[in-house]
Simulated scan of single mutants.
Amino acid sequence: MSDDDYKPGLIGQIKDKLISSKQQWAKDGRLLTGEASSRERNRLPPGQRLVRDWPVLDLGVQPNILLDRWQLTVGGLVGNPVKLDWNAFLDLPQSDSISDIHCVTAWSRYDNRWTGVLASDLLKLVKPKAEARHIVFQSYDGYATNVTLQMFSAADVLLAHSWDGKPLTREHGGPVRIIMPQYYLWKSAKWVKHIAFLDRDAPGYWEVRGYHNTGDPWKEDRYG
Rank of each mutant, 00 (worst) to 15 (best):
M1Q: 09
Y6H: 08
K7P: 03
G12H: 13
I14V: 14
K17L: 13
K17F: 11
S20M: 11
K22M: 08
Q24P: 00
W25L: 11
D28Q: 15
D28F: 12
L31Q: 00
L31M: 00
L31R: 08
T33Y: 04
G34V: 11
E35L: 10
S38Q: 06
R39E: 05
R39F: 01
E40N: 10
E40V: 03
R41A: 11
R41I: 09
R41D: 13
R43V: 06
V51G: 01
R52E: 10
P55R: 00
D58N: 12
D58P: 04
L59Q: 14
G60I: 01
G60T: 06
V61G: 00
Q62L: 05
L66M: 15
L67N: 03
R69P: 07
R69F: 09
W70I: 05
Q71S: 12
L72T: 04
G75I: 00
L77C: 03
V78G: 06
N80E: 04
V82M: 01
K83D: 02
L84H: 03
W86T: 00
F89H: 02
D91Y: 03
D91N: 14
S95H: 14
S97E: 15
S97M: 15
D100C: 02
I101M: 08
I101C: 04
H102D: 12
H102N: 14
C103I: 08
V104Y: 06
V104A: 11
V104L: 10
V104R: 08
A106W: 05
W107D: 09
S108Q: 02
S108P: 01
R109L: 07
N112H: 09
N112L: 15
N112R: 13
N112T: 10
R113Y: 04
T115F: 01
G116M: 13
G116R: 11
G116N: 12
V117M: 04
L118F: 13
L122I: 06
L122N: 08
L123A: 09
L123E: 06
P128C: 07
K129S: 08
A130C: 00
E131G: 02
A132I: 03
H134M: 10
V136H: 04
V136C: 09
F137L: 12
Y140N: 15
G142V: 13
A144R: 14
A144W: 07
A144Q: 15
T145M: 01
N146M: 09
N146S: 15
V147S: 07
L149M: 07
M151V: 10
M151E: 12
F152H: 10
S153I: 02
A154L: 10
A154P: 04
A155V: 11
D156G: 10
V157W: 02
L159M: 13
A160C: 12
D164F: 14
D164R: 14
D164Y: 14
P167Q: 09
R170K: 13
E171C: 00
G173T: 10
P175E: 12
R177K: 08
P181N: 07
Y184F: 08
K187A: 05
S188I: 01
S188G: 05
A189N: 07
V192L: 13
K193T: 14
A196I: 07
D199R: 02
D199Q: 03
R200K: 11
G204D: 03
Y205V: 06
Y205R: 04
E207R: 05
V208N: 13
T214R: 12
T214C: 04
G215R: 07
D216A: 11
P217F: 05
P217S: 07
W218K: 02
E220H: 01
Y223N: 00
